[in-house]
């Protein structure tokens, strides 16, 4: 159990999430990829707290922030998905490429 092993696991989760967020067409699956990336960030924050500066509480506070960010991302993401589906029946990211430039 070393810092490097924890961070490598976190990097693996982050990379898998990035792959999902970039490659999935479904908006819901894309959000799962984002959640998986944040999952890796939680693990990295906990590991950095434990192995580098266990005296402070900054690592714990960072985990609280990331967990909140996950909840916000889910709620806002599904609200946007609902709005765009209601407006024009889009449930794939390719259908919402208006801002592509």
């Amino acid at each position: 159990m070393t810092l490097q092993l924890f961070l490598l696991t976190a990097a693996g989760l982050f990379a898998i999430g990035l792959y999902g967020a970039l490659s999935q067409q479904s908006i819901v699956m894309l959000m799962m990829g984002l959640e998986l990336m944040l999952n890796g960030v939680i693990l990295a924050a906990a590991a950095c707290w434990y192995f580098l500066a266990p005296g402070g509480t900054e690592g714990q506070v960072l985990i609280v922030v990331v967990v909140t960010a996950m909840a916000v991302e889910m709620a806002a993401g599904f609200a946007v998905a609902t709005a765009i589906y209601r407006a024009r029946q889009v449930d794939m990211t390719d259908g919402a490429a208006d801002l592509k430039g």
Binding site: L3, L8, A11, P54, G55
Partner: peptide
């Protein structure tokens, strides 16, 4: 892109000279 990201992160993780553990948990 994701494999490249992982390789980049792993390189950083393994090469960085991490600081020593300071302090004890409350």
């Amino acid at each position: 892109i994701s494999v490249g990201t992982f390789v980049l992160l792993a390189t950083g993780i393994l090469l960085v000279d991490w600081p020593r553990r300071t302090g004890a948990p409350a």
